[in-house]
Design a protein around this nucleic acid. Structure first.
Lengths: 199, 199
DNA sequence: GTCTATATAACGATAGAC
DNA sequence: GTCTATCGTTATATAGAC
């Protein structure tokens, strides 16, 4: 059961996290001060510490919450009985959908994971990275084995290209423009699967 | 004419710039303190200001020098009389070669251009970005017009995918390992031109 | 060209009143 | 839950001796 007070506290907390996420994504973790976050929230910097232990705790909560949701949806794709090609298409679409729905979180992970990973409390970021690699290697191996993908592929290199291209789109994608995330995913899959060459 | 004193001063200056570039690339511009740079150089932080005006001047010199060299080599490709496909292949190889020869500079540009671009003195970064876009759009347009590339391509989107995938490799590429930059470029061109799909 | 010493500002975080 | 007030630390940068 959830009391009204808890609900209200949670929405306020979520609001602060969302404001902080926008700033972290736009200016970077180190470039965003707790005063920046407080200003954007309409309160003073000291008041933030009623809600969070530290600046690190804020970005920690942003990233861990997002990662949990993201990998749950990857698991759903892996567990399905779709064929190899459909699974790859679903995984790609799922990633661009994450960029659309959670672009701040994706941007923070892309930009700050290396730096934050140096701190013990963010060790789960490296684990999630390894988990993501396993998902894609599985999908690509299945693709080659079932004859959907070319057998001369360097699987490891292909995985890196897919991972990089899919996530780096967060740098330029903005929701609400002409180019929807579904169309970007489709165009990307066309290039990835069939190439840009004629014939 | 260059005197010996100037030569010596320039090598020392180049040495400091190289040390700073490594730190900026590894830890980020904001996360690297002038004390970090001084420590790594075996001098004290105050002594750095004998060589450079400010921390910003250091990263400025790193980036502008690199950009000048990079775009000179792009121009050479554009000016050549190779066919469209060869030019695209040369441009891709050239980028992976830049990652190999100047990975710190590439990494700094990839990670910090957005943030630094906010300062007036780094306005040239946005100009170089536009220049890079023109190079690739020209190459892709020529490719479609000459029948080398598929005519149903979204040129703008294709350009972004190529740009992102080519440069983001700086995140994982390390020189001196089994995978050479030439082989990475070849594998990447195979995927880009022909796709990963079988048939 | 580097050192000693320090100015000056910004930062993350805390304590207690309201 | 926010404010006032401030502590302790760290950051960029400067001035002058050597």
């Amino acid at each position: 059961m959830t009391t009204e007070a808890e609900t209200h506290g949670n929405t306020r907390r979520a609001e602060l996290l969302s404001i902080a996420a926008g700033l972290f994504a736009e200016k970077g973790f180190k470039n965003t001060t707790v005063r920046d976050i407080a200003d954007a929230s309409g309160i003073l910097s000291g008041s933030l510490y009623h809600h969070f232990d530290s600046k690190e705790s804020i970005v920690d909560e942003i990233l861990s919450t997002f990662q949990e949701e993201l990998f749950a949806s990857y698991d759903a794709v892996l567990a399905s009985d779709d064929d190899a090609r459909t699974k790859i298409e679903r995984a790609v679409h799922l990633s661009f959908e994450a960029i659309d729905k959670h672009r701040h979180e994706v941007a923070i992970f892309q930009n700050e994971a290396d730096y934050l990973g140096g701190f013990g409390r963010f060790a789960y970021l490296a684990e999630r990275n390894a988990q993501s690699r396993e998902v894609w290697i599985t999908l690509l191996d299945d693709g080659v084995r079932s004859g959907v993908l070319r057998s001369d592929l360097d699987i490891e290199l292909t995985y890196r290209f897919i991972r990089d291209t899919v996530w780096v789109a967060v740098r330029w994608y903005r929701p609400g423009r002409k180019l929807t995330h579904e169309r970007i995913a489709d165009q990307y899959l066309t290039i990835l699967l069939d190439g840009i060459s004629h014939g």
